[in-house]
Design a protein around this nucleic acid. Structure first.
Lengths: 221, 221
DNA sequence: GCGGCATGTTTACACCGAAAACATACTATG
DNA sequence: CATAGTATGTTTTCGGTGTAAACATGCCGC
């Protein structure tokens, strides 16, 4: 195991030894607390204990650092959702399971979720690795739609149409929750029931034979 | 008609005469071109031809100006959607009509739409007029859900549940479209059909008796 | 052992939001 | 009509930002 970098424990060494990772880690903390809009490369450098321009040795600019964070976030989402898909279950169940995992991740990591969409990052199209990671995350859903269509569980149409619909619904729910738009005290359901209910309605939109009376919590009669 | 302000045509007058409106107008242009994150009060002041701190006479800070823009945007959304609701039509049709108007507005005014959600504005809760405007916009949808439930068109449950679902779905679609996430060239439908289809699926989620085979464009068989 | 290259620092510039002290001119009151 | 008060705009200043350029350091391969 070659010692390719200087000892990170040696605080006096000229080279940091692990600046890139340290910056990314500090950046995650920063956006979690203050949002991506308020991220400052100089502040990051101070936190890590390095001069204010050192980050530019590892990232072309601030946008470059955000792009890398976004790429990691897409990969995490891919892993979390695909990890919940079980070929022995119905596609409907898999959609509920993966959807729940997606929503819980988004809500537990609001700033990272906002980062990967939204406009903190500019010129996304100029970063192929970011595009690839985003595409992989979407493919989990697209594949599920294709399976469900083939098995007759979902409406028999182009899977892209179904995937767009599901994604819109789940994405919108995630953002409205993150943005605190669902005024909590007016809600008839607790958060977990609200999440489950939303996913069941999302599923209902694309199911071939939707239940006339879905079994979510409180019907008002 | 009293001349409450100095002649706006007199470019040499010390007082601008209409600074507040001029700043808001310039701000709309600016965020349309560069997004709300890049809005600069100083740049606005230059455009309008006034000193760099003059805007602070009309807005407590940059956030205050953004809040006012957001309030106006919510009001525009309320007007556009409620204007499409026709009591002589079914609630389902009204949802499709209002939903289409909402989406077209959002997509035609992406930066304004992003502004009213998202995190460019901070401490939203400290601006009651903004809250009121947002609430009014949501109430258009909530009222429609209540009507549809009462008339037996929509699932018989708390209208808030249905409204949350519809709003999530439409909001998500708007943002994914605005953010350019729906890679156009892979889509099986043109944009108008895609919009219509999404709304029909959104309606299907909450309809009491959803069609088994909705009549949107291309089934793949 | 030494030269090159990756990594870090110093310095500098142009921009920003915002606070404080000051200047101007509209408007309401006598 | 005169003038005092107030709303509006300016100047100055501060601390913060992104990032480019020139320079310093020290690790790694020859």
């Amino acid at each position: 195991m070659s010692r390719a970098v200087s000892d990170p424990n040696n605080a006096t060494s000229y080279h940091h030894g692990n600046l890139r990772e340290a910056l990314l880690s500090a950046a995650v903390d920063s956006i979690r607390e203050q949002g991506a809009e308020n991220l400052s490369l100089r502040a990051l450098a101070r936190v890590v204990g390095v001069s204010q321009t050192a980050p530019y040795r590892h990232f072309a600019d601030k946008n470059g650092l955000l792009v890398e964070l976004a790429r990691q976030t897409f990969d995490e989402l891919s892993g979390i959702t695909s990890g919940r898909i079980d070929a022995s279950l119905s596609c409907a169940d898999n959609l509920l399971r993966a959807g729940e995992a997606y929503l819980r991740y988004a809500i537990a990591n609001p700033e990272k979720y906002r980062l990967i969409f939204g406009s903190s990052i500019v010129h996304r199209e100029q970063y192929p690795p970011l595009q690839t990671a985003a595409r992989s995350a979407f493919n989990v859903l697209l594949q599920l739609m294709a399976d469900g269509t083939r098995r007759g569980e979902f409406l028999h149409t182009d899977p892209m149409i179904l995937a767009n619909n599901c994604w819109s619904s789940i994405h919108g729910f995630a953002l409205l929750t993150i943005d605190g738009v669902f005024a909590r005290k007016e809600q008839p359901l607790g958060f977990d029931d609200m999440l489950t209910t939303h996913l069941q309605l999302t599923l209902r939109a694309i199911s071939r034979e939707p239940q006339e009376r879905p079994d979510f919590a409180p019907f008002s009669d």
